[in-house]
Computed example of a mutant assay.
Amino acid sequence: MSTVSVDLPWFARATRKFGAPAAFAAALIMSVPGEIHLAEVAGWSGDFAKLMPVCVSVYAASAAVMADVARRFDLPGRKSAQVGAVLALILAILAQDISHLIQLNYMNSSAVLVAAVSAIPGLVVAHLLHMGRGPRETAIEVEAPDVPESDEDQEDGQLSLIDMKTGEAKPRRGKRGRPAVAPEVIEAAAKELQARGEKVTGAALGEALGLSRRTGARYLRKVATTAAETG
């Protein structure tokens, strides 16, 4: 599968860079009064009630991100994380609706409502602890078979691709890798250059081996390292 570079128009880039974060911040700010009011209805007061937006809207956003990461990287508990993220979103929506209905006298508080709102912090803690069971790093480790080293690929600074679904290495098309040169062959080429009175450089060694000068320099470093260890 090849990749293409898409040049987005300026307004699309601006929307992605500035519009989405601005809308996200505005939505969080607008949710604050209703969630604080709902906390006050449930019996919290003062600074404690001001923490309810963190337990509802910020929690819903965090749960959505963590559930998406769990799905992408196949982390433990991904299904329950996704269910919890959906429930967190529903909770954030209902908190606004119920608060505004109470403020406009369309409904009154009740024991059931107070009990449900009072349970929010505990449920948030339990769900976040559940979703936090995954590894600290999100990188996937796969076992890939050994593939022949390609000097052309290293010249371009490119590596073979790894299929993240199967864990199999996929060499790039159109370039066949060359087998690595044995250390004794490299040493023999270096000694031959010295015998001819030539200076052993990466370029000279690469030319003697029929490889690129960068590969020759890399092999020269290997020879020097081996000599230092044995000497």
Rank of each mutant, 00 (worst) to 15 (best):
A227G: 05
P53I: 01
P145G: 10
R16C: 12
E198N: 13
Q103L: 11
K199A: 13
A224M: 09
V114W: 05
V83A: 09
F11W: 14
R173D: 08
V124D: 00
V32D: 14
T201H: 06
P121E: 04
R72Y: 15
V223R: 08
L8P: 08
D151I: 11
G84I: 07
P33Y: 11
E141I: 03
L193K: 08
R78Q: 15
E149C: 10
R176P: 10
V6F: 14
L193H: 12
E168R: 11
R13K: 14
R78V: 09
A22Q: 04
F11H: 15
T201A: 06
K222T: 12
V83N: 04
L104W: 10
D74G: 08
A14F: 06
V86C: 05
A115K: 09
P135S: 15
A180E: 11
V86E: 09
G197H: 05
L205G: 02
P145M: 08
F11D: 15
E152Q: 07
V147T: 13
A189G: 03
I93W: 09
G134I: 02
V124H: 00
G46Q: 13
A63M: 07
V32F: 15
A61V: 01
A115H: 12
M107N: 04
P145F: 07
A208W: 00
D97A: 08
L51H: 02
L87K: 13
E229D: 07
H100C: 01
P183E: 11
V41G: 01
R136L: 12
R72G: 08
V124M: 01
E152Y: 11
I93G: 12
V58K: 00
R71K: 14
K50G: 02
T15A: 15
G134S: 07
A60K: 02
M30A: 14
H100D: 03
T230L: 10
K199E: 11
L104K: 08
G77Q: 02
R13W: 06
V112G: 06
G84F: 01
L104R: 14
E168W: 05
P179F: 04
Q158W: 06
D7P: 10
L8H: 15
T226E: 14
S80Q: 13
S45K: 15
G174N: 05
R172N: 04
A61F: 03
D151M: 12
R172E: 04
V185S: 09
E184Q: 15
V125R: 12
T15M: 14
A208L: 07
G122F: 03
E35F: 00
R16M: 12
S80T: 12
L94Y: 07
A49M: 05
G210Y: 13
K170F: 10
A20K: 05
A42M: 10
A139H: 06
T201L: 02
L211V: 06
E207T: 07
I29F: 05
G167F: 08
V223Q: 08
A126N: 05
A12Q: 13
A26K: 05
V58S: 04
P121W: 00
H100K: 06
D47P: 08
R221L: 12
I140N: 05
S150N: 02
A208R: 10
W44L: 15
S150R: 00
T138W: 11
T230C: 06
G34R: 00
S160R: 05
A126S: 13
C55T: 02
Y219S: 00
G157I: 08
G34E: 01
L211H: 09
